[in-house]
C-alpha cells in the first residue's frame, strides 16, 4: 500500500519540488501552504507522515505540531520538521513537543530528502 504524506510548506517552488519528487518515489502526497489547511486535511484523511515547515504564515509550524500532538486521533503520527540551517533551538523545541525528526532543507538535495523520508516511513525505531 502506498504511504501517504502530508506536506506543509509555504514556499510554492519548494513545496511543488518535494511533492513531485516524493510522488516519483511512490508516495501519495497532499501538499498545503499553511498550517491551518494542513490541520484541516488531517481531520479528513489518514496520513503516515507529516513533513512540516516551521516558518509559516499565520500559525507557525511549532503550533501546528502542538495541535497534532494534542489531538488524540493524530498524537501518534510521525511528524518530521522541515528546517533551515541555524534553527537549532527550533529543532530542540520541536523534539520537546514530539517531533520524530528534522530535515535541513538547504543542506539536502532532492534525492537525499526522498531517501530520508523513506527511512522515516519504513523504520519505526528511527530517531536522531
Amino acid at each position: 500500500m502506498m504511504q501517504k504524506i502530508l506536506l506543509i510548506e509555504d514556499d510554492r517552488f519548494i513545496r511543488e519540488m518535494y511533492q513531485e519528487e516524493l510522488k516519483k518515489a511512490g508516495f501519495l502526497v497532499s501538499a498545503y501552504g499553511s498550517g491551518e489547511e494542513g490541520l484541516q486535511a488531517l481531520q479528513q484523511n489518514h496520513f503516515d507522515l507529516v513533513l512540516l515547515d516551521i516558518m509559516l504564515p499565520g500559525m507557525n509550524g511549532l503550533e501546528v505540531l502542538k495541535q497534532i500532538k494534542l489531538n488524540l486521533q493524530t498524537k501518534n503520527l510521525k511528524v518530521v520538521i522541515l528546517t533551515n540551517l541555524g534553527q537549532e533551538t527550533i529543532i530542540k523545541e520541536g523534539f520537546k513537543i514530539g517531533a520524530t525528526g528534522y530535515l535541513i532543507k538547504s543542506s539536502y538535495n532532492p534525492d537525499q530528502i526522498v531517501q530520508e523520508v523513506k527511512r522515516f516511513t519504513q523504520d519505526n525505531s528511527y530517531s536522531f
Binding site: F13, I14, E21, M55, N84, L85
Partner: peptide, 16 residues
C-alpha cells in the same frame, strides 16, 4: 534566512 528559501529552490531545481 530570507536568502535561503529561494536558494534552496535554485539548488534543488538545478539538481533535478
Amino acid at each position: 534566512h530570507e536568502l535561503r528559501t529561494p536558494l534552496t529552490s535554485i539548488k534543488g531545481y538545478l539538481y533535478i
